[in-house]
Amino acid sequence: MKREKLLKSYIPMTETAFYILISLIEPRHGYGIIKHVEEITNYRIRLGSGTVYGTLTKMHRDGLISVYSDSKRKKIYEITQKGQNLLQIEIQRLKELHANAIKYGEELL
């Protein structure tokens, strides 16, 4: 997929896509992703396995993640360089969002 198309379809990223992609900086299997996202969001986000499967299939098709099988023939997913580049762009956007939230919205807290 072309870069512009990729940016258009992934950025801004949905919460689901963001958490799935960021957990794949470490290689993980499907259920590992669900557990990891639960832990880092304090059980706020409980991903459905269908949602994870759908997202992974799309990301794999777009070259954001790669797949291989481990010794028990379980599928392991891992972010690719292309996926890392995309995640960086999203993180920059989130940083800006965060900075502006503090700068202009702090008094509401």
Partner: peptide, 13 residues
């Protein structure tokens, strides 16, 4: 037949 980058081979592999 994968759409990953050319040099992108997983560490585990």
């Amino acid at each position: 037949h994968e759409k990953r980058g050319k040099a992108d081979l997983s560490k585990a592999l």
